[in-house]
Design a protein around this nucleic acid. Structure first.
Length: 303
DNA sequence: GTTGAGCGTT
């Protein structure tokens, strides 16, 4: 497939605008958003079913529904459709709902034999349910396993099952637990006071560009800034137009280019941690200590 | 080329 123009409109009855595809026939969401600011996807009316159909979107790249885009008019999707419903509830309820869906998170796998590979993990954990990510942590220099890794499942039920038992992997008993990073802030409670529009993206890889991060996070809402520290420090900051979008992502593990990144609250720039937490009586003082500890791990003067 | 509680960079 070669470069072409596809017809896109705000509404089925509006006059369409032609926007260019890439050389491989895909269309970048950013190209759509350049003409339709805030767009988060495309849909079209299927000539067969007469129903509206969504266009496949993978990490900021829109894929033609058939061999090519054809002569159809594609209609722009906006996150506002969801936001209207979101407006009726506060961030606290949003968090509850998010938890109600029971999203999966990465699990740390402790006690792996030195010889165990990612393929071994995939084979083993695949017997419990669909696996979407496995990692064996290795010494960068020697390539030797550090004896632990991570796994992520599609279904929360699978995650629960896996966490509830010990695992015999290549001749050793291993444990699967929620990693410690999960205990930072996102477990503080449903009334999380931080309502920043900016999120901290941990565990970034060096090959992730600001543009790619923007492409990726656009699916959740309008992105107003992406900051990547130089030299490479394995994290980034992403700022959204809407704080509710930012907050809804906090605590999640998202997979970008096959790598699991961790989203958490961005810390205020000129932080006075104890002042921040003092506004919320009843909260454990240890929370500020945890906050400081994480800050020590990721020293940052940004925000 | 070793090891065995932990906590995720290339």
């Amino acid at each position: 497939m070669t470069e072409c123009y596809i017809r896109v409109a705000e509404d089925e009855n509006e006059e369409p605008m032609e926007i260019p595809s890439e050389e491989d026939g895909t269309v970048l969401l950013s190209t759509v958003a350049a003409q339709f600011p805030g767009a988060c996807g495309l849909r079209y009316r299927s000539p067969v079913s007469q129903c509206m159909r969504g266009v496949r979107l993978v990490e900021g790249v829109l894929h033609a529904p058939e061999a090519d885009w054809g002569n159809l008019v594609y209609v722009v999707n906006y996150p506002k459709d969801n936001k209207r419903k979101m407006d009726e509830m506060d961030a606290a309820s949003a968090v509850k709902i998010k938890r109600g869906i029971q999203k999966t998170s990465d699990l740390i796998v402790l006690g792996l034999p030195w010889k165990t590979t990612e393929q071994d993990l995939k084979d083993y954990f695949g017997t419990f349910g669909e696996v979407i990510m496995v990692q064996v942590k290795r010494d960068a220099k020697s390539g030797n396993s550090k004896g632990f890794g991570f796994v992520r499942f599609t279904d929360y039920e699978t995650q629960i099952k896996v966490m509830s038992q010990r695992h015999m992997i290549d001749g050793r008993w291993c444990d699967c637990k929620l990693p410690n990073s999960k205990y930072f802030l996102e477990q503080a409670g449903p009334d999380e006071p931080m309502r920043s529009r900016k999120v901290f993206v941990g565990r970034c890889t060096e090959d992730m560009t600001a543009d790619e991060l923007r492409q990726f996070f656009m699916q959740y809402g309008e992105v107003t800034d992406v900051f990547i520290p130089k030299p490479f420090r394995a994290f980034a900051f992403v700022t959204f137009a809407d704080d509710q979008v930012a907050q809804s992502l906090c605590g999640e593990d998202l997979i970008i280019k096959g790598t699991s990144v961790h989203i958490s609250n961005a810390e205020p720039k000129h932080n006075n941690i104890h002042h921040l937490f003092s506004n919320f009586p009843g909260r454990s003082p240890s929370l500020a200590a945890m906050f400081e500890r994480s800050q020590y791990q990721f020293p940052s003067s940004h925000v």
